[in-house]
Design a protein around this nucleic acid. Structure first.
Lengths: 206, 209
DNA sequence: AAATTACTTTATAAAGC
DNA sequence: GCTTTAAAAAGTAATTT
């Protein structure tokens, strides 16, 4: 079986490249915050309470953005790893502290969503996949990718004909790789992966 | 038991009132879109099921009717784009698309993937093309599918490009702009799809003088 | 007509309308 | 439902050069 795969196509055994692109996390500080005071004391913040209740604070390199609420909760987006996320939270708190916004107690960080990209390095027959997979939607008029809702792990995948994809909804990094393994196996079993010698004998026009 | 009958009766009359209003909207929209009887009836059946399942609660009759029409057109192989339908309703494209997904999920509708070939007859007749040219366009789409050139691409754009190629081959000249307008895509899209077809299908396009 | 910018889709939390 | 934020995928669209 494996032999056949080797002989048919070497790239069908190359491991998919998975990369985390964005982590969204909530941070809970055990204290209320005065957003107007923060707006006055901390430079480079955006605060338009009429438009959105959160105050926006941005970090450069890595580019991370925090939405800060008066309840002391915040949403931190843009990090590409847990370590980067933790470092960013510390930096935010230190910056605030340096500008006279005292924050005490340790922040509780919870990852809410992990967005990742992956490349199977094999073309995918999306029409086949759309008919053979469950819980999916493929509407090329609206979006070029096939949207697949995986049950276990509970994530959503956007699969493109190039074999590249987006995985989102994961709360742990291992769910991402698990999802990619699963979909790769499933697509292969359902014969939705395009082997080079497959899109061969076409009828000619002339 | 009497109360039960009373409740059921009240729900039924509510459904009836909704249906009466919805059928008026369906007629209006169908006339605007010049839909045939079969498509209208299909849309009516879908909408009735939606109301009976309580899917219209919290949504506007217009958006659900528009989505029903969109589904009916696709099922009857006479597709219209969401943009075209939204041109004739108060509901915007996003809302119609949302209702469409709801209908597909809740009514377990099996809507085939939009086929570029199905767009050809209507676009062709709006462009006043010959049946032969339309057949050639359909054949081009068929080959493009086999060569896996259609995945992820807007079916309207693919149909438009195939039609453009056919007009060149059949000498029934139409500008990319004319075709793009009728297809509801931009000239750039027609051009991009066209280039891909010519390259990948190795077509010999007659030279222009 | 090519380049740039921007929007489509997905998930996710926050507080409030 | 919406508002705001981040990021990727590939297609399409609107502007700019």
């Amino acid at each position: 079986m494996l032999m056949v795969c080797y002989m048919k196509k070497t790239n069908s055994i190359s491991k998919p490249v998975v990369q985390i692109e964005n982590i969204v996390a909530t941070v809970t500080l055990d204290q209320q915050l005065d957003l107007h005071e923060i707006e006055r004391k901390v430079p480079r913040v955006e605060y338009n309470p009429d438009q959105f209740p959160g105050l926006v604070f941005r970090l450069d390199r890595p580019k991370i953005t925090a939405l800060i609420f008066k309840s002391g909760k915040m949403v931190v987006t843009g990090s590409k790893s847990t370590q980067e996320l933790i470092t960013a939270v510390k930096r935010i708190i230190k910056t605030f502290y340096n500008h006279g916004i005292k924050i005490t107690g340790r922040p509780k960080i919870q990852i809410q969503n992990i967005v990742a990209s992956a490349n199977l390095n094999v073309d995918v027959n999306l029409e086949d996949a759309a008919y053979k997979l469950e819980n999916n939607m493929y509407e090329p008029e609206q979006f070029p990718g096939l949207i697949h809702r995986m049950t276990d792990p509970y994530v959503v995948l956007l699969i493109f004909s190039s074999g590249k994809m987006v995985i989102t909804g994961a709360k742990r990094e291992e769910e991402v790789s698990k999802a990619v393994e699963n979909i790769y196996k499933t697509l292969k079993e359902l014969d939705c992966l395009v082997t080079k010698s497959e899109d061969e004998q076409e009828e000619e026009f002339f | 038991r009497y109360r039960k009958w009373q409740i059921r009766s009240r729900i039924q009359s509510s459904i009836d009132r909704n249906l009466a209003q919805a059928m008026n909207e369906l007629d209006r929209l169908s006339n605007q879109l010049h839909l045939n009887r079969a498509v209208r009836e299909e849309a009516a059946v879908i909408y009735r099921k939606a109301v009976e399942k309580g899917l219209v609660r919290g949504r506007s009759i217009e958006s659900v009717i528009a989505a029903s029409v969109y589904v009916a057109c696709r099922l009857k192989k006479l597709p219209r784009t969401l943009d075209e339908i939204s041109l004739h309703t108060r509901a915007n494209r996003k809302e119609i698309a949302r209702c469409y997904r709801l209908l597909v999920k809740e009514l377990q509708l099996k809507v085939p993937i939009a086929d570029p070939i199905d767009y050809i007859p209507r676009m062709g007749s709006l462009l006043d093309l010959s049946g032969k040219a339309m057949n050639i366009a359909a054949r081009i789409v068929k080959i493009a599918k086999q060569k896996a050139l259609t995945a992820g691409k807007d079916p309207a754009g693919l149909a438009a490009a195939a039609i453009y190629v056919a007009t060149l081959l059949e000498n029934e000249k139409r500008t990319q702009k004319e075709i793009a307008n009728i297809a509801g895509v931009t000239e750039v899209t027609v051009r991009n799809r066209y280039k891909e077809l010519v390259n990948e299908l190795k077509l010999d396009i007659p030279e222009e003088d």
